[in-house]
């Protein structure tokens, strides 16, 4: 291990993380604000149901399964939930992550045992791999996919994979694995506002609009 390795790691843990977090948060806010700034013409039709509440109800309702779902629908929701839950549990309940959150936020919370975190990480990775296979083999999904879908997939997989490596040295030094992990996290954070990954913020806006547009018509969308 050379000094420059440690310097790089220190930079990644300090300014690197700081800057990528700033770009991530400011970028996402900008992305949502930019969309909202396009505005829409006020609806002059007499609404059938309270529009704001209808929007909120749809934000919730679209998290559920709906009647008559196809195989593709079940796959998408089950694999999607598995990936997101595994990722979020790993992100928020790994003890090393909580140390970092405490340093940033000034407070922390109890961690989950490493074995559970391992399970969640592997489940999340497995879901991602299944999702990629589905994207390549399903004729509909393949036909509507572009390079961004594959890029976003890779950028999402790397932090999970390198994080797992850092926790389980498989022929790689801890420092190197941690360096790769931080690098991949920061690349992901920076990429989110510029790619389809910004759906993590816009999903709430989209669902609300959908519910509000249907709410004018008295439809529970």
């Amino acid at each position: 291990m050379t000094m420059s390795d440690l310097e790089l790691l220190a930079w990644l843990r300090g300014p690197g993380l700081q800057w990528s977090l700033i770009i991530f948060i400011a970028g996402l806010i900008f992305r949502v604000a930019e969309n909202l700034a396009l505005g829409r013409t006020p609806d002059l039709a007499t609404p059938r149901s309270p529009v704001f509440a209808a929007g909120l109800a749809t934000v919730w309702r679209r998290s559920l399964f709906h009647p008559g779902m196809s195989y593709r629908g079940y796959f998408t929701l089950i694999a999607g939930y598995t990936f997101h839950l595994g990722l979020l549990i790993t992100l928020f309940f790994l003890s090393q992550h909580i140390v970092m959150f405490r340093a940033i936020l000034g407070f922390g919370w109890p961690a989950l045992p490493p074995s559970i975190i391992d399970f969640c990480t592997l489940l999340s990775i497995a879901a991602l791999i299944t999702i990629l296979i589905h994207r390549i083999t399903d004729p509909v999904v393949r036909s509507i996919s572009d390079y961004q879908d594959y890029l976003a997939w890779l950028l999402t997989l790397l932090p999970l994979a390198t994080g797992f490596l850092a926790m389980h040295p498989l022929g790689m030094a801890y420092i190197q694995a941690l360096t790769l992990h931080l690098m991949s996290v920061e690349v992901l954070l920076i990429a989110i506002p510029f790619t389809k990954l910004s759906h993590m913020a816009s999903i709430f806006i989209s669902r609300w609009y959908n519910g509000a547009l249907a709410g004018v018509r008295g439809v529970k969308a």
């Binding site: 013409t41 629908g73 879908d149 759906h199 989209s206």
Partner: peptide, 25 residues
């Protein structure tokens, strides 16, 4: 292109679930 349209396009993850809702598909 208004705020809903831009938000919808931003959100699409290309999952293909809309195909099964469309009788033409």
């Amino acid at each position: 292109i208004d705020a809903p349209t831009a938000s919808f396009f931003t959100s699409c993850t290309h999952c293909g679930m809309c195909a099964d809702a469309c009788l033409f598909y």
